[in-house]
Structure formats: C-alpha cells, structure tokens
C-alpha cells in the first residue's frame, strides 16, 4: 500500500465506515504494519476532541447495573473457553468418572448431530453461477449459493496458485455494498465456504475469483487479477 493508501485506510478505520470483511482484513494488516498502526493511533487520538461531549455526571444507576453484571457473570456475555487439542488426553485421565460421563454426553450430542444432519434432505441452492475463465471464456468453476450465506465451489479446471498467494472468492450483493469476500483457498479444490451475513443470493448476482496475496486481500476488496467470473441464475427445479 502507498502512504496515501494507508492514510485513506486509517481514515476509514478511525471514522468507523469499514464493513465486516474489510474491517477484519484491515485489523490483520494493522497488527503487522507499524506505519499503519502509527497513522491509526495518531488520527484516533486527534479525533478524540470531537468526543469531549459535555455531560453533567455519570449516571449512578448505570454503574449499579455494571457492578451487578460483574458480580453475576451469568448475566454477562457468554465466555468462550478454547481447550487446546493437546490437553484433551490429560482431561480423560482415569479416576474422573464425571469427565467420562461428560465425554459420553459430547459423543452422544455429536452422534445426534450427524444423524440429524444426514436425515435432512440436502439443501437446494438458491442460485447457481458458472464462472468463465477470463482469458479462454470457457466454463471454469461452478458456484452453488445457498440461503445460509454458504457457497459450494466445484472447479472444472486447475488454477496455478503461486507460493504466498491464495484464491479469493467474491460476490457483489449490490453496488452499494460492493464486493464481499466469501473466503480463500490455497489450491484449486472443491469446497464449501461460508461468507458473512448477506441478503439472499439473487439471480444476476456477480461471483468472481481473484488471485490475492496470502492470507487474503489486504484491503477487503479484490486487488489481484480476476481469474474467473460469472453471474448467478436460478436453477430450474
């Protein structure tokens, strides 16, 4: 990114106008780019003068609610506990029957989930797009887009993905939202990807795949060459 590009991105970030995927990509960039971090820190400190809103005093009732939530974490947001995979074996040590029971419950839940999943009819795609190779204009990838923000990709040809680059899948829900990343692949393969929460895919919606620097476009918008693109159509059911 040029310095102007970084200033513009820092401006969008501090102003709060970045959308989900764009924001996540920018925050990754921010963690690894000291110049960008410096621009953001400077601008947010300066813009802070606009937040010196004069108010009388802090509402005491609000502090009481915060204290109550601190004392009673159950009403707090759910805390996610990540158990590293390597620790699983030590937790199943003998002599802890309740853990064995808990493990059974997890297995049962997992089994039920699989049963539930297989007894359901396979979902029908809302729209299907055949993406054409930009150079040869031949069909190169089939995209099935479902109503739950997931897409199923079936490549019909193999793309060269140079070291340090990835294939990034995009869609354009509407002009105002702009292109939205649905995910990345490090090689040509069949895949299910789940993108951010978007309106239901529509006939005529654009899908495309670009070649981007790993781990994905730094700007949250397509920056690399377009390999394939195509417009979605309704399947005849």
């Amino acid at each position: 990114m040029t310095r102007e590009g970084k200033q513009a991105a820092a401006g969008d970030y501090v102003l709060g106008t970045m959308n989900g995927p764009e924001l996540r990509a920018f925050e990754q960039e921010l963690a690894s780019d000291p110049e960008l971090a410096h621009l953001v820190a400077d601008l947010s400190d300066r813009m802070l003068s606009l937040d010196n809103v004069s108010e009388t005093e802090a509402p005491a009732a609000l502090w009481a609610r915060i204290e109550a939530a601190l004392d009673n974490p159950a009403t707090d947001e759910p805390q996610t506990t990540v158990v590293p995979i390597s620790k699983k074996t030590s937790q199943q040590a003998p002599g802890t029957p309740w853990m064995a029971l808990a493990a059974c419950a997890v297995v049962a839940l997992g089994f039920g989930y699989i049963l539930g999943a297989t007894t359901l009819a396979p979902p029908e795609p809302r729209v299907i797009a055949v993406l054409l190779d930009e150079t040869s204009a031949s069909p190169a990838v089939i995209v099935e887009a479902f109503g739950d923000d997931s897409v199923h990709l079936v490549p019909l040809e193999t793309f060269e993905v140079p070291q340090g680059q990835v294939l990034e899948v995009w869609t354009l829900p509407d002009a105002e939202t702009g292109p939205v990343s649905l995910g990345t692949l490090d090689e040509t393969r069949e895949a299910m990807l789940t993108g951010p929460d978007l309106p239901e895919p529509q006939p005529g919606q654009l899908y495309e795949i670009t070649l981007e620097q790993a781990p994905g476009s730094p700007t949250g918008r397509p920056t690399g060459p377009i390999l394939v693109k195509g417009f979605a159509r309704n399947p005849v059911l």
Partner: peptide
C-alpha cells in the same frame, strides 16, 4: 468517563 461515553 461514563457520562461522556453515554453521550458519545
């Protein structure tokens, strides 16, 4: 900061 932040 509470009052200021509520206003923000």
């Amino acid at each position: 900061e509470g009052a200021r932040l509520v206003a923000v």
